[in-house]
């Protein structure tokens, strides 16, 4: 069970014991982390689970994939090379300690 830390735009940390195999969006929504909406249910189709992966984690998590994830991120506020849709990050034990920063608002 990896421990994932979601950090809100005002700096509040929400630490979640997530199940391996689910997405970082599902882990946040099921633990009621405010700031991750996940309106489309996890198919990279709404852009409401935008997170910035902590740079120290980026090589392990990987950058946004080409196709719909990148296309949706292009339309969000504040896209950076660390931007991912949390629904496209499948969690594994190796993600224990992962830090995900959240934007002010999800569209």
């Amino acid at each position: 069970m990896p421990k994932i830390t979601y950090i809100t735009s005002s700096g509040v940390e929400h630490v979640v014991d997530a199940d391996s195999g689910i997405s970082a969006m599902q882990a946040a929504v099921s633990h009621r982390v405010p700031g991750i909406d996940g309106d489309c249910g996890g198919v990279a189709a709404c852009g409401t689970c935008h997170v910035w992966v902590d740079p120290s984690w980026l090589d392990r998590v990987g950058p946004a994939r080409p196709g719909i994830e990148s296309e949706m991120l292009a339309l969000t506020d504040g896209r950076t090379p660390c931007s991912r849709l949390a629904c496209q990050i499948e969690l594994a034990d190796a993600h224990d300690g992962l830090l995900l920063q959240m934007p002010t608002d999800q569209h």
Partner: peptide
């Protein structure tokens, strides 16, 4: 309740 189609999905989702 947030899982609905009214805003559409994909790149043309309601702004």
């Amino acid at each position: 309740a947030r899982r609905h189609l009214s805003f559409g999905f994909g790149i043309h989702r309601c702004l």
